[in-house]
Amino acid sequence: MQGMDLMLQIKGLTKKFGSFTAVDNISFSVKRGEVVGFLGPNGAGKTTAMRMVTGFLMPTAGTALVAGHDVTASPLEVKRRIGYLPEGAPLYEDMTPLELLGFVSDVRGLSGATKREAIGNAASRINIEHVMHQAIGTLSKGYKRRVGIAQAILHDPEILILDEPTDGLDPNQKHEVRKLINEMAKEKIIVISTHLLDEVDTVCSRAIVIAQGKIVSDGTPGELEARSELHNAVTFRLSVAQSDLAKASIEAISNVDRVVQKSAENGLVTYIAYPSDSQSIIDEISGALKAASIDVQEIQAERGRLDEVFRRITTAA
């Protein structure tokens, strides 16, 4: 036994389909309490990687370990500890949610009162109680997705792997699912794949970006944002009359790299000032504007834009 704490370890995981390498030697480990956002453009290898971790596909090389159990050597031990929502939430459409959850309970060895309780809990957490007797094939895309999540959380797994859990949900349902993930985050390991960047900000404590099968970034969403060239840039808006003076006085500040005009309308001009070394420059800028007695309509520091970082790091690879 190596410590009491739960770990998901991915070691050199690789999958080749013929000459095509879908997942190329990725390694990382996740601790209890972490919510990992698995990001990447379509076709980057997210789904393939998840399929190997959950034991659906056999890795070409490398492996995944759950609490010390190797998925290639003892898949049942691993599968028992994981709740998994496959991509697209495939479900037996001729069954009702109640029958499906009953089947999953049977296979997971839950019976009697435990089974009823597990089904009841999962159904109420994900809010599908009122469709439990309707054939899954007749449900909307959003409900199907929720039934898929319900079967994943049914046995209260230590590890939850969700492939695009909010795909096809409306904004309210997305909010519900994210709330649920946040509620469960403390005592579990959660890995979600997504290409929605706002989801990373709201639910993930860590973002792993993969492109062409390789990890290109691994850090907190804040660290990812900090890689944006907009990080700590300052946006300010003022009247056209004072714009030349303002631009000149800000460009004179030593750690301002450049000032770019973003838009102009109704006699107001918006500029973005980029820092030369990613450090905060908002104090210097507001000081300089005050010293030149320029009235500013609006001034704010940027955190960085995830979509810009995402595009840059996933296309550079």
Binding site: R51, T54, G55, F56, L76, K79, R80, I82, Y84, P86, G88, P90, L91, Y92, E93, V104, V107, R108, Q151
Partner: peptide, 14 residues
């Protein structure tokens, strides 16, 4: 074809 094989084979069944 329906993709449910992935659901079935990632449950703890041999």
């Amino acid at each position: 074809k329906a993709g449910t094989l992935e659901l079935l084979m990632t449950l703890p069944v041999s």
